[in-house]
Design a protein around this nucleic acid. Sequence first.
DNA 1: CTAACGTATGAATATATATTCATTCGTTTG
DNA 2: CAAACGAATGAATATATATTCATACGTTAG
Lengths: 119, 119
Amino acid sequence: MEEIIVCEKNCNHDDKAVCIAKGAMLPESDVQRLAEMFKILGDPTRIKILHALTGRELCVCDLAETIGMGQSAISHQLRMLKGYRLVKYRKEGKEVIYSLDDAHILGLLCMGLDHINHS
Amino acid sequence: MEEIIVCEKNCNHDDKAVCIAKGAMLPESDVQRLAEMFKILGDPTRIKILHALTGRELCVCDLAETIGMGQSAISHQLRMLKGYRLVKYRKEGKEVIYSLDDAHILGLLCMGLDHINHS
DNA sequence: CTAACGTATGAATATATATTCATTCGTTTG
DNA sequence: CAAACGAATGAATATATATTCATACGTTAG
């Protein structure tokens, strides 16, 4: 699956470890996308939004009140979540109603919850 | 499982949604710990370190060379990972050899990889 | 058409974060 | 004991990030 890269530099101690580790490295693009994805989940406000939207759809205003933050802050975060396809929206009159777009990400959230509870 | 909180404020539109959403909210402490945990995984360098240490132990120097970054940068990140019990170390002469301390977290990494690949 | 409402947005601010540099510490080796 | 090495650390810096404020936009109601 992963291509083997030969390590050029000769370090003083055990070369082999570095060579093997280098060869096993994730492609940079995967690393970046992974980090990006986890970073999105690494913010309390965004977690609250995603969790609030599980099994429910809510307009911006209600989200803001539910979470207890300003409308603008929520809107900015929704913009980001929208960008990563984690939420979608539908317009109804003046309201914009958000819901989850990616059920898959909930698995990560749940697994995260498991992790912080069982340890 | 979760205690129901009654919402006081009367918003113009549908109160019920907010009440229910508020009642279903995660405890603040859970939210914080979840976010904290994901934030740790939300950095390319830390992902590289954790991934490099899967199935292998490496000293700081080799980690730095494997990843292609300065010793100090790696050391700072290891400090953080150590703080969250994601890595452990053992000393061998002048070297400090790190390994994973929490195999559980690898599940999250893998699941993350699945997620970015199948979507 | 105008006012009111819900939302989006840009700028500003405060804060957090990662990396580098210089230095120190501890261990080993000559 | 002194020099060399690997690692840790603190300060400094650069950069990213979240939130607030003010305002603009679009829709609806009067």
